[in-house]
Amino acid sequence: MLTLLTYPPAFGLFSASPFCVKAAYMLQLSGQAWQRSDMLDARRMPHRKLPVLRTAERLMPDSDGIRAWLEAQGADFDAGLDDVRKGQSRALIRMAEEHLYFQVVMDRWANDEVWPILRDTFFAEVPALIRRPVSSAIRKSVLKGLDAQGVSRFSESERLERVECDLQSISAFLRQSAFLMGDEPTSSDLSVGPMLAAMRATPAETRLTQRIRQDKLLCDYIDMIDRTISLP
């Protein structure tokens, strides 16, 4: 049986990581028998991050790598889409994973209201005596990465203006059909849906969580994916 190595459940989600949720959705749609195995410390994993899929032959890192492996076994996450729709799907995936994701990280790791909750959730395995210095050092590294990526250089209003353009683009698709590419979930939904869900689930009332929670179209979409692809 396949085993998905994933970050544990958090904030009411299958996992705190939208990429782990994406991998779980893909496994569920693939029809393969699988189970989860939770971990917090991914330093010994390929790429030093999760998700990772344990197959009979190897450890397959990264949600895109997992997708490629599942497709090689016969899964088709874009069944019925022509080349143009597949291209649109790919663009939506990149928008979610290369832009919206960093807004989630910023909303969580750079927010002093959220940080104590994250610290006790993500670093629960670290002995309490050293949890604060260890987690603070990692937080400092994450914030440095956000600065290098560029997202933290914008003001909150500038950041949210950029996010709004993405959310309006997603909504334009959803006004035409139940899912982004039609009446059934395809690969873009498996990335965009978990990213929006992560935004909504951040354990504090931020301007970004408010934006998602107050949008009925986006909330209905998040919930529909969860109902359609029911995870164990």
Rank of each mutant, 00 (worst) to 15 (best):
L2R: 08
L2M: 08
L5Y: 02
T6L: 06
L13V: 08
S15T: 07
P18S: 06
Q28M: 09
Q28A: 10
D38V: 05
L40N: 06
R48T: 09
L50I: 04
M60H: 04
D62P: 04
S63H: 00
D64Q: 08
G65L: 05
G65R: 01
R67E: 05
F77E: 06
F77N: 08
D78E: 13
D78I: 04
G80L: 03
K86P: 02
K86C: 01
I93C: 05
I93L: 04
E97L: 03
F102L: 09
F102K: 07
V104E: 07
V105I: 14
W109R: 01
A110E: 13
I117Y: 10
I117M: 14
A124R: 12
V126D: 09
I130V: 14
R132A: 15
P133K: 10
K144Y: 10
L146E: 02
G150E: 11
V151Q: 07
S155Q: 08
E158D: 08
E158V: 01
L160C: 03
E161R: 12
L167Y: 00
Q168W: 10
Q168C: 12
S169K: 12
S169L: 13
I170T: 02
R175M: 15
S177H: 15
F179G: 10
G182D: 02
D183P: 11
E184N: 14
D189C: 14
L190A: 05
G193R: 03
A197R: 09
R200M: 13
T202P: 08
P203K: 02
T206D: 08
R211I: 11
R211C: 12
D215K: 00
C219E: 08
I222P: 00
I225R: 05
T228C: 11
